[in-house]
Each structure stands twice: as C-alpha cells, then as structure tokens.
C-alpha cells in the first residue's frame, strides 16, 4: 500500500516531559487512519509537528503527493486543530475565502465553492453575516469547511468530534467518509475511541507519547484473543457450570442471560460447542471487545498506566 505520509522516530519533549517518544507510522493513501489515545497522550503534539507548527526534537516526516517523498507543503494539507475558531467579526464567506486563499486557492473559485458548501449546510443565508451571528454548532460546521475548502489530498483532523452535538457528529462522519470516497487521505485523532473506530481503516494507539498498538483495525481486532459472548438460554436451565469453564469470566448474569469474556486456550469454537451441548440457546453473539478495552488491556499488560488528563 502506497503511503502518503511517513513518520519515523518522531520525538518531542517539553522540559522533562516526553510528549512524543520516538513514534513511527505511515498513512496509506486514500484511507482513514485514527491516531487514538487518552487526553495528554501526545496526539496533538504529534499532529502539530506533522503540520509544521511545532519543530520536532528528532525524527523525520515525509509527504508523498506526487510519486516521491518531500518535505512539508502546507498548501496540500487541510488542518482542523483541536483548539479552533475563526474571525468572529468577519463575514462567514470572507473567513472561508481568506483561509482558502492562504492555502493558494484563487478567490473567485473559493467564493463559488464556499457558496456550494454553505448551501449544503443550510447556512447560505448567513454567508454575508458576521460569524458571531451564528450558533456554536453552525460555527463548527464553518470551521470544518474552512479546513477542506481548498481540496487538499491529505487532511489532519485533531479531535474533530470533541464538543460536537450528536447531529453534527453524524454530519462530520458523513463528510469524512465522502472525502475518503473522493480519494482524500485522512489522519484523525480522538480520545473517544468508540466514536471513531467504525470510521478508521487503520489505527495508531498512543499512550504517554509511545506506541501501544498499530495496524489495520480489522487485523488488530482479529488478533486480539479475547471475545465477548452474550448468551440467552432457557431460564429454567441451570447455568452455574459457566463459572467452571477455564478462561471464562462472567460480566453479567441473570436467569436465562449471561454476558462473558472468554480468552480460553481451547478456542471459541470449543466454547460454543460446550454451551450448545449443555443449554438450550435462544440467542448468542460473539464479538471482539471495543477498541477502548483492547487499548486499556494492552496498556495494563505492559504494566503501564493509562494517562488521564
């Protein structure tokens, strides 16, 4: 898979604190990659270094926009920082045209496309209003458009969903998927992993500035040996034997229902056979735990703490 962004041994310290500690990863062209971890893990510092806003202490960052790796060209990248805002005392359309202009987009073209975006967002009647007239939710939409109006091949979204209401969250997800469908590569960071794992093709999990896990989301989940099993059976039957199965931990239990975690060496097929032979099953689901749990478990297995900012 061809990479559009390659990061190698990237490091940054603030005083004694290692904010980013020699991380390396690549972002495949045309995919959505999630840079995930708790608050304070180093996501924003890493993204700012990629965007050329902070100078790295060490490491290399390369971009491949046209067949070979080259240093940063800010005009080819869209960026939505975590701390974001626009000129409040300036008209909505003028905000968009200026920011696209800084990225090299001609004013006429930017104004036309800004108009199209505002129509789509139901904000077209606000185009000539000052930004401060808009509600917070509307402003968030405008900020989002500002980051992609110049049609960059690569977009960095830092915590794109923080502070959004559920309607805007869904709307942003829809546009992010659309961007990918149009060939745009996206690197997004988030601390609410459950919110973004459905979006990501691949992930890079980070804690205390260091890599925890990385790779294709599907492969990470499949290689994770634990499963969550939700079992419904005839309430008249006795399910107490479940406790005796090696590698099985019961999370929730009531007559006719058991939610369990299983990582027994016998394997999930053996477990399902045993359950089927001893109980009258009405429903059963087996799924991998959510990404957040995989993250916490992996960190704990390494004897580290999950940083809570």
């Amino acid at each position: 898979m061809e990479l559009i962004l390659k990061v190698k041994d990237l490091a940054k310290s603030f005083g004694a604190k290692k904010a980013v500690d020699r991380i390396s990863f690549g972002v495949p062209r045309g995919e959505i990659m999630g840079l995930l971890g708790p608050n304070g893990a180093g996501k924003t510092t890493a993204i700012r270094m990629i965007m050329g806003i902070l100078p790295p202490d060490a490491g290399e960052i390369g971009f491949n926009f046209n067949g070979h790796f080259q240093p940063l060209d800010k005009s080819k990248i869209g960026y939505l920082p975590e701390e974001r805002g626009l000129y409040e005392d300036v008209k909505v359309a003028d905000n968009l045209v200026y920011l696209a202009g800084l990225k090299g987009k001609p004013a006429g073209e930017a104004r036309r496309e800004a108009q199209q975006w505002l129509e789509r967002l139901d904000l077209v009647s606000y185009a000539d209003q000052k930004l401060e007239k808009l509600s917070k939710g509307m402003q968030q939409k405008v900020q989002f458009v500002a980051s992609i109006l110049h049609r960059p091949p690569l977009v960095l979204f830092d915590e794109p969903f923080s502070g959004l209401d559920p309607v805007n969250q869904d709307f942003f997800k829809e546009i992010i998927r659309e961007l990918r469908a149009g060939g745009t590569t996206i690197l997004l960071s988030a601390h609410q992993m459950n919110l973004v794992e459905e979006l990501c093709d691949s992930i890079f999990l980070i804690n205390h500035g260091r890599e925890v896990l990385s790779g294709k989301l599907q492969e990470i989940k499949e290689s994770y040996k634990e499963n969550i099993v939700e079992l419904r059976y005839d309430p008249a039957e006795d399910g107490s034997f479940l406790k005796m199965i090696p590698g099985l931990r019961i999370l929730q239990e009531q007559p006719g229902l058991a939610v369990m975690r299983y990582h027994g060496s016998a394997g999930i097929n053996a477990l399902l056979q045993e359950l089927g032979s001893r109980l009258t099953i009405s429903a059963i689901t087996v799924e991998k735990p959510p990404l957040h749990e995989i993250f916490v478990e992996t960190v704990r297995e390494r004897g580290e703490e999950v940083e809570v900012a």
Partner: peptide, 16 residues
C-alpha cells in the same frame, strides 16, 4: 484576539 478566537493555529497551518 486571534489567539483568544483560536484562529491562530488554523493560520499557522497555512503560513509560518
């Protein structure tokens, strides 16, 4: 004001 508006980081993503 640009700092308080939080527009400054967006500007810095385009210009030095």
């Amino acid at each position: 004001k640009e700092k308080r508006n939080r527009i400054v980081e967006i500007l810095l993503s385009s210009v030095t």
